[in-house]
Write a protein that binds this DNA or RNA. Structure first.
Lengths: 253, 253
DNA sequence: TCAAAAGTGTTGGGATTACACCCATGA
DNA sequence: TCATGGGTGTAATCCCAACACTTTTGA
């Protein structure tokens, strides 16, 4: 929570630089050791968790704002981002509002306003991300999707909606490029799918379907080191992958 | 186009009542005599066409604002609305901006601002709609989807995106409830699908698939009057229809 | 009685599912 | 040598597309 002085400075800066009433919240999905992760922030001096979010500069495209916000939190440029919903319940930022309303008059108080928030989900390569807290946060960290605490504001709803959307998208286009490291094995990719869909899939049928997309390059070298038979390594064929994304949108009729 | 005096009054009223920087634009789809229609507006004193749109009251939920805007244009309450995208290119309202920027200083001039617009598409029963122009418009009318003129601002993009989204949605859930009259025949419903998808479908397979959803009630009475064999009338079974919508979202895995 | 619209049935093929079997590896 | 993870193959099934045939109706 901000002190009055901090709130005043923050508000003045925000009013100067950002569009009022509009925010962006991001659900950043990562994948590590067979577990789906989401990036969340813990606030300073509060037992309060949030999704990473921010505001939009006055003449900045939405997508660019989302990228900028994420760059600050993850160190990553050029992230796969998908806008999925606008959340605009007039009561959605009530908690913030209550927390700060008595500190400053509304005209000067950035958080005394209603905010619509544009939800983006991001798919990122876990191993490349270096979670970084922002000025309001104490920590920024990867949280197992199974262990997400109650989030403040409507962020639990935003997360749920993001996950639903991701599942839907997964069912009509190959996702994975942005979540997997350069090289990966089919069982690893399968784990990703199983995690997103929350469902067991058949090993052999999964391989057939995936390879059927024709978007993978098989490496000669198998993954070494592990116990048991060494699985083959694959990477995405970016050319064909992009084509498949477009193809996927055509739908089933 | 507004006069300076009108602009001043409009701006004052808007600043008083609406959230700045945010608008809503609606793509209203109707279906009549086998042709897909979209509701568009023609401006007073300009050869300029727009999608119906408006602004959001300061404490109004987004959905309610969209409904209110549409009620003013169509006379319909309780419309099927689907939020599908936010358009936020900083240059998107440049035309408006250029048109009005010299009339009033920016601080008082509603249209001197950047607007993000939330796109909704609506599916409505053509026969129940009574197109009504608003204060800025000369006419509001149903336009064949094949004959839409160039729209101002980014409204052509918004329309295209709405149509793409509608097609996508059609491929994984049964749409039609909101576009068809209470009673309709399978060939009529097929026309709707063919129009949306811009593709011929097989009569027999279409019936099988549709009836397979189990969301229709067959009427005993066939449609009379037409030449040739009288087709059966169907209506949607609202209970099962809603269940099918939820089911549809589960996707194909 | 015939053309056109509509209802119903059949069939073949492609995709998806549910399996079984084999191979490699470390404990 | 055996449990486990991983690669590959196959039969059964289901779904869907492409068909043909029949019925009804007004002209």
């Amino acid at each position: 929570m901000l002190t009055k002085k901090e709130l005043k400075a923050y508000s003045a800066d925000a009013r100067e630089n950002y569009l009022p009433h509009i925010s962006i919240d991001c659900v950043v999905f990562g994948f590590h050791e067979g577990v789906m992760k989401v990036l969340i922030l813990k606030m300073k001096d509060e037992a309060a968790w949030y999704l990473p979010g921010g505001f939009m500069r006055k003449t900045e495209p939405i997508e660019m704002a989302a990228n900028r916000i994420l760059k600050e939190r993850t160190g990553l440029d050029d992230i796969f981002l998908q806008q999925f919903h606008v959340f605009g319940d007039p009561e959605r930022s009530k908690e913030h509002f209550e927390m700060y309303k008595d500190m400053l008059p509304a005209a000067q108080n950035w958080f005394a306003n209603r905010f619509l928030t544009i939800g983006y989900y991001a798919l990122v390569d876990f191993s490349h991300v270096n979670p970084t807290p922002d000025e309001l946060s104490e920590t920024c960290f990867w949280c197992d999707i199974e262990e997400i605490p109650d989030l403040k504001l409507d962020h639990s709803l935003i997360l749920k909606t993001a996950l639903d959307t991701l599942r839907l998208h997964l069912s009509y286009q190959p996702i994975g490029y942005n979540l997997m490291p350069k090289q990966f094995t089919m069982p690893e990719l399968q784990k990703l799918y199983e995690t997103i869909l929350d469902k067991k899939l058949d090993r052999r049928n999964f391989q057939r379907r995936m390879l059927g997309f024709g978007i993978f390059n098989k490496s000669d070298e198998p993954r070494k080191g592990g116990a048991h038979k060494a699985p083959f390594l694959y990477s995405f064929d970016t050319e064909n992958y992009k084509a498949a994304l477009i193809e996927g949108f055509k739908g089933g009729w």
